[in-house]
Simulated assay, not measured.
Amino acid sequence: MRAIKKINNNVAICLDSNNKELIAFGKGIGFSQMPYEILDLSIISMTFYRIDNRFYKLIEEIPENVFEVAALIVHKAQIILKCSLNPNLVVGLADHINFAMIRMKKYKKMKMVFSYDIEQLYPKETELGRYAVKLIREKLFVSLPESEITSIAMHLVNAEEENEPITDGTDTEVLISEVVDKIEEFFSLTIDRSDFNYNRFAMHLRYYLKRIKEKKQFMDDNVIIVQAMKEKNPKVYECASMIGNYIDKKLQEESTEDELLYLMIHINRIINNRAIED
């Protein structure tokens, strides 16, 4: 195995004996000078194939210890769920955990609700969510709220397929593009569509559309949280409501308040990201 690029001290991009690219985890794997022609396989603890290279920059931005915990969670999920998982799950989950930790520090009083509906529908994924929250507490010394069990479970549910979710093929991508156009127009800004932040937002929208089409929307009692975010970020609430109504009309469905909450969180995130220029 050959290491071709360091991501951090314990993660590197490698090529296997068939010249297939993979992400390799191992203590000190990144200390060697790159490219490193012969890699000591004994130091590799986990490997992940087919991670979209659009997310390599995101991997570099996520704290090393957070990424390692996400990798352990995904490894456990592969054993328990025994099904194909989206190869980008480890990146998306690491990004979510990092964001959840930051969000908790900024909104200490905000408590999202644990979903008993999700627990009934997806018991294995919920148990993995509990394992993840426990692991985060032990490894990262952060006690995430119980609601994160649900959020992590849904990341796993969404990843239980070979590719990213597709609802109506090209129509879905057109709808996502239209949504981003509306956000740009509403806030008078430009979103860099080649950046990983756009791809992260687009992925959320694909899952959002998938849940609506399959009638599996989030349906918990987070009305108080929606109201709190509305008061704190009225423009974001107005934009999210506009986007939700637009999607509802397109799909002839009705988004729940909880979906609106998640849409607000993601819109707020993308408009405050460095990848966006006024």
Score class of each variant (00 low, 15 high):
Glu161Ala: 11
Met110Cys: 12
Met229Lys: 09
Lys57Thr: 15
Asn199Pro: 06
Pro234Ser: 02
Gly30Gln: 01
Thr150Tyr: 09
Met264Leu: 09
Lys106Val: 09
Lys249Asp: 09
Ile80Glu: 04
Leu205Gln: 05
Ile73Val: 08
Arg2Glu: 15
Asn158Gln: 13
Glu68Tyr: 11
Pro165Val: 00
Ile267Tyr: 01
Asn19Arg: 10
Lys124Cys: 02
Glu119Phe: 07
Leu209Ser: 02
Lys105Tyr: 06
Asp52Met: 01
Asn8Phe: 04
Glu178Tyr: 01
Gly28Phe: 03
Arg2Asp: 08
Lys134Glu: 13
Leu128Gly: 00
Arg200His: 12
Glu173Asp: 15
Asn158Lys: 11
Glu160Leu: 09
Ile152Lys: 01
Lys230Asp: 11
Asn163Val: 11
Phe55Pro: 10
Gly244His: 03
Lys230His: 13
Glu64Gly: 07
Leu72Lys: 14
Ile118Thr: 13
Ile118Asp: 06
Lys230Ala: 14
Ile224Pro: 03
Ile243Lys: 02
Ala94Leu: 09
Leu22Ser: 12
Val226Glu: 00
Glu146Asp: 15
Ile118Cys: 06
Leu140Gly: 03
Glu259Ser: 05
Leu81Ile: 04
Glu60Val: 07
Lys5Ile: 08
Asn233Phe: 15
Ile23Ala: 06
Ile80Leu: 00
Tyr208His: 09
Met104Cys: 09
Cys239Arg: 01
Glu160Met: 15
Thr150Glu: 10
Tyr198Gln: 05
Gly30Cys: 05
Leu72Tyr: 08
Gln227Pro: 07
Asp181His: 09
Met219Tyr: 14
Tyr49Glu: 15
Ile183Asn: 03
Gly28Ala: 04
Leu209Cys: 00
Pro35Cys: 10
Glu60Cys: 11
Ile59Arg: 00
Arg274Glu: 15
Phe114Trp: 01
Leu189Cys: 10
Glu148Cys: 08
Asp192Arg: 08
Lys249Asn: 12
Tyr116Glu: 12
Ser84Met: 11
Ile29Cys: 08
Gln120His: 07
Met229Tyr: 14
Val69Phe: 07
Asn65Met: 11
Asn86Pro: 05
Ala70Cys: 02
Asp40Pro: 06
His155Lys: 10
Ala3Met: 13
Ile102Ala: 10
Asn53Asp: 12
Met46Trp: 08
Ala275Cys: 14
